[in-house]
């Protein structure tokens, strides 16, 4: 089981990272979601015990699932949800200001800005 959990975390993380490297911003968002999912799965699997749900009345003798990792996972899920929503809105806003979702084109816009700045600020080299 240990290895299986680790592999599942690794596959989710790797898939997410793969999408992060794409030129399409929407894929980047999906990649972030996958990576957050990987972290959430890892937190749950980092629980110190596995068994029945930690809700009273508890059956005697049976192990109880670690409630702390569940609480941590809940918090992490919610935070990653909020951030993912923010990222979505940002992607949308980037689209409306650049009319593009392509990271290559954004990088080009960066370079253009930089060229303008360099022209404007480099006044006379000092030797």
């Amino acid at each position: 089981m240990t290895l299986l959990f680790a592999v599942a975390v690794a596959i989710l993380f790797g898939s997410g990272a793969y999408l992060l490297l794409k030129h399409d911003l929407v894929r980047v968002v999906i990649g972030m979601v996958l990576i957050s999912n990987a972290a959430n799965l890892f937190i749950i699997s980092a629980g110190l015990s596995r068994g029945q749900a930690p809700i009273y009345p508890l059956a005697d003798g049976e192990p109880v699932s670690d409630p702390l990792v569940q609480a941590m996972t809940l918090t992490a899920i919610v935070i990653s949800f909020g951030v993912a929503a923010l990222l979505l809105a940002l992607v949308y806003r980037v689209y409306t200001s650049h009319l593009s979702l392509d990271l290559d084109e954004l990088a080009e816009a960066d370079e253009r800005d930089e060229a303008v700045r360099d022209l404007a600020t480099l006044t006379g080299r000092q030797r």
């Binding site: 990576i35 990987a38 940002l90 200001s97």
Partner: peptide
């Protein structure tokens, strides 16, 4: 809300989110 500021925010968010996830994994 200028275009370059939005681009900066995108870069900042994604890179640092990756860092936050790594931190979270380490905490767990």
């Amino acid at each position: 809300d200028r275009p370059h500021q939005l681009r900066a925010a995108t870069i900042f968010l994604i890179v640092n989110l990756l860092g936050s996830v790594l931190f979270l994994i380490a905490i767990a």
